[in-house]
Computed example of a mutant assay.
Amino acid sequence: MKASEWEVDSNGYWEALYSDDGREFRADFTKDGKWVETERSITFDDLPDAVKEGFRRDFGQEEIAEIEWVDNAVKGIFYDIELKKPGPNKDVEYNENGNRIEPFLAVVSEMTEPLGSGATRAMRTEEMSAVQLLFEFGFNLLTILIFAWAIYYRRHHDHKMLFLLLGFNLFLFPIFLLSTSLTIGFGFTVFALLALVRMRSDTFSKTEVAYLLGAVALTFINAILPARVEIASSIVVILAAYFADHPKIWRDGYRTTHIRYRIKDTTKMLDHNYLSRQLAEDFKIEVNNIEIERVAKNEVRMTVMYRADPAENPGEDSLRLPE
Rank of each mutant, 00 (worst) to 15 (best):
A150L: 13
K284S: 05
K75C: 05
G60C: 15
R40C: 07
R155S: 13
P174F: 05
F59C: 06
L165V: 02
M128W: 14
F168C: 11
A232S: 03
E68G: 02
N273D: 13
P114D: 01
P86A: 03
N99K: 12
G60A: 15
L165F: 03
F104S: 03
R228S: 10
R301F: 03
L17G: 07
A150S: 10
T180G: 12
S318P: 04
L182Q: 00
E93R: 15
F25Q: 06
T120E: 08
R255D: 15
E39S: 15
L239E: 07
K248V: 10
V300A: 09
L145R: 07
N89Y: 13
G22Q: 04
N11W: 10
A73K: 11
L321F: 09
A16W: 09
A244Q: 04
T38Q: 11
S109W: 07
R228E: 08
K84M: 06
R154I: 08
N313T: 04
V190F: 04
R200A: 13
S179G: 00
T112A: 12
R251A: 14
A27T: 15
E126L: 15
I285D: 00
E110Y: 06
L164D: 11
E136Q: 14
I263L: 01
S129I: 08
S19N: 10
I151M: 09
P88W: 10
I144M: 02
E66M: 04
E24T: 15
L83R: 10
I285G: 01
V209N: 12
I64A: 05
T256E: 01
S10E: 12
E312N: 11
E312F: 12
F78P: 02
F55T: 12
L218C: 07
I235A: 04
V190S: 03
K75L: 14
E286H: 06
G138F: 01
R124P: 12
W14F: 14
K34V: 11
A240R: 00
V92E: 06
G60Y: 14
A227F: 14
A130N: 03
H246R: 01
V92W: 06
I249H: 00
D158A: 14
T125P: 02
R56K: 10
R251I: 14
Y153G: 12
F220C: 02
D9P: 11
G22M: 04
K85P: 09
F220M: 06
T112R: 11
I221H: 04
T38C: 07
A192N: 02
S205F: 08
I290G: 03
L164V: 15
Y306G: 01
Q278F: 00
A50P: 05
A50M: 10
F173K: 06
Y211I: 05
E15Q: 04
I81W: 11
Y153P: 13
N273Y: 12
F163Y: 15
G167K: 13
A119E: 11
N140C: 13
